[in-house]
């Protein structure tokens, strides 16, 4: 019994290490590359010969600054607004789905699912034409609206699943304890729903932040171009120089907010706050 447990542990450890290496090696490689000097790029070594910040300098204060910083600003703004709108709408929608019984409930969920599995690439071209006609092309709303179509379905699904687990009896208990309807919602339900809303917001933010197809197709200038699209427009110092170093540095910088978010809200994301409210 004990032997098999140790064995099981070893197997799991090996699998975990394998998955970690598989997932993190590219990131480590990009990180190393971002510190290489241009001449060092083709050295074939994993680590840079000289650690240098020249790539970061270039995108933050150098030639590529205009391209990178404006796109960073676009990305942050567009992703945050899209996330906010998606979470607010999805919260209302999921609340209704979890709490109320109304005709068409199933239809909403299936439609949301259908939208989320719809291939993005097939609507990009019509959207491109439509946006140009109505003047949304290369604007923030022009990206926020399609991002909502990506973030809303998944937000509705995760939140509806989360809200279903909330013991709504608590709301009634609070009312009997002397709370108004609003107090009951705010003091008993919101603290329980918050982790779910947080998690959903983070997932939605990731989706909007990582999008490339809409970003490259529906923008043309720095007015709205997000980082993933902007990376494709980086050029080297001369036309014979590949911009690999600068792209790596930019990739690392856009990864940082995601890592920070996950670290900060780790507890909310994995939270088992609803445990203990009811039996079990």
């Amino acid at each position: 019994m004990k032997g098999s447990r140790t064995k099981e542990r070893v197997v799991w450890t090996v699998i975990s290490i394998f998955v970690l290496v598989y997932a993190l090696f590219p990131v480590a490689s990009i990180l190393a590359t971002s510190f290489k000097e241009p001449s060092d790029l083709t050295s074939g070594k994993f680590l840079p010969t000289n650690w240098s910040g020249v790539n970061y300098e270039e995108i933050l204060v150098g030639d590529a600054q205009g391209l990178f910083l404006s796109s960073l600003w676009n990305s942050i703004g567009i992703a945050l607004i899209a996330t906010f709108i998606a979470v607010v709408l999805a919260t209302l929608c999921a609340y209704a789905i979890a709490r109320l019984d109304f005709p068409g409930k199933k239809l909403i969920l299936t439609t949301a699912l259908a939208v989320s599995i719809f291939p993005v690439i097939s609507i990009v071209t019509p959207l491109f034409n439509l946006w140009r006609t109505i003047g949304l092309y290369d604007t923030w709303p022009g990206l926020i609206i399609p991002y909502l179509s990506l973030t809303l379905p998944i937000s509705i699904w995760t939140l509806a699943a989360f809200f279903r687990q909330i013991p709504w009896e608590l709301e009634q208990a609070a009312q009997v304890d002397g709370a108004t309807t609003w107090q009951a919602f705010r003091k008993a339900i919101v603290p329980l729903a918050a982790p779910g809303v947080f998690t959903t917001a983070i997932i939605a933010f990731f989706i909007a932040w990582n999008d490339f197809v809409y970003g490259i197709s529906l923008t043309s200038t720095e007015a709205a171009r997000p980082v993933p699209a902007a990376l494709a427009f980086f050029t080297g110092a001369s036309q014979f120089e590949a911009p690999v170093g600068a792209i790596s540095a930019a990739a690392i910088i856009v990864t940082i907010p995601i890592v920070l978010l996950v670290l900060l809200f780790q507890r909310q994301i994995v939270s088992g706050l609803t445990q203990g409210a009811v039996k079990g």
Binding site: L170, A173, A174, D177, P191, L273, A277, V278
Partner: peptide, 12 residues
């Protein structure tokens, strides 16, 4: 005052 079947305690 009411005591519910599954206690309805506030978990947070």
């Amino acid at each position: 005052a009411m005591v519910f079947q599954n206690y309805a305690l506030y978990p947070h």
